[in-house]
């Protein structure tokens, strides 16, 4: 269906203006990261003489934390999808009793503040030796992702025609095989959406990084920036360079996977 006549460039100009205002902090972050060390207490409006020493410092001090975040985020993607995909499939395609209960439970999780989870996990982790561990962070960070992934993937899988599944069943495929070789390939888009969001949730996590790590052995980049900010105020360029580095995954994913974001958002429950 055709919409009212397209608007032209005037709208584009307004649009650019709006986006420029919204994007200003991002610009300012990049600008600050390119200023020479020290004088960024009052940096210029434009990085006329870009200085990359901030990035060198950032990579030296925070490189390891970036790797930590990467490990935790990827681990969390694997765990979340591994848990959520089968569950979403079962919830979408089997009217077993208790389905509603599980769904209700998933909804309730959205109302639980992270601090509640962190509070209790701290003492449990302390007893189990999971503080300051990759596994501990992956498990905790997935709390934001698993319910979300279930919601998104279930919504998608409900739309898979029963006939496709039935046909595979008639051909003698077991439930697991149907799931693996029919449902998963068809659900690629939903899987990617869930994976992208899980990655970003985990990458951005601050609360669990702050509460469940106490040393610098396993320290995600978000916490790295937070502590950097307190200790190196005379090196704002390095702090901001770290911030830019920490933004790269979001920017890259936005560039290559934009459509998945809209899908994820319209499917609800996102932070």
């Amino acid at each position: 269906m055709k919409r009212a006549p397209d608007r032209g460039w005037p709208s584009t100009i307004i649009g650019i203006g709006l986006v420029a205002v919204m994007m200003f902090p991002v610009y300012w972050m990049v600008n600050a990261s390119l200023q020479p060390a020290g004088n960024t207490l009052q940096g210029g409006w434009f990085p006329l003489h870009p200085d990359f020493s901030g990035y060198a410092t950032a990579l030296r001090d925070q490189g390891r934390n970036i790797v930590t975040s990467l490990v935790v985020a990827l681990g969390s993607v694997a765990l979340s999808l591994g848990l959520a995909a089968p569950a979403a499939y079962a919830l979408a395609h089997s009217p077993v009793r208790g389905t509603n209960l599980v769904l209700f439970g998933v909804l309730i999780t959205q109302m639980v503040p992270g601090i509640v989870v962190a509070n209790a996990l701290y003492s449990a982790y302390n007893d189990l030796g999971l503080l300051n561990s990759y596994l501990g962070l992956i498990l905790a960070d997935s709390t934001a992702a698993v319910p979300f992934a279930i919601i998104i993937m279930r919504a998608f899988m409900q739309s898979i025609p029963r006939e496709i599944i039935e046909a595979a069943r008639v051909d003698g495929a077991g439930r697991l095989r149907v799931f693996r070789s029919v449902v998963l390939p068809v659900s690629r888009n939903a899987l990617v959406t869930a994976a992208v969001f899980t990655f970003l949730f985990t990458w951005s996590d601050f609360l669990f990084a702050l509460t469940l790590t106490t040393t610098n052995t396993v320290r995600p980049i978000t916490l790295g920036i937070y502590e950097y900010m307190g200790a190196h105020t005379n090196q704002w360029n390095a702090v901001m360079a770290t911030a830019v580095l920490a933004s790269i995954p979001a920017a890259v994913l936005l560039a290559v996977a934009q459509r998945y974001f809209a899908f994820g958002a319209t499917s609800g429950a996102v932070k």
Binding site: R7, W9, L18, P25, A250, L254
Partner: peptide
Amino acid sequence: RRFPLGRVLRGLLLLPWLLPLVVSGTTWKW
């Protein structure tokens, strides 16, 4: 509205939401 570059601009608009909050918070604080 549909206008030239509309899609691109709409995409860019998503960035503030996708950035780690620590990053945007730090930038704003400064």
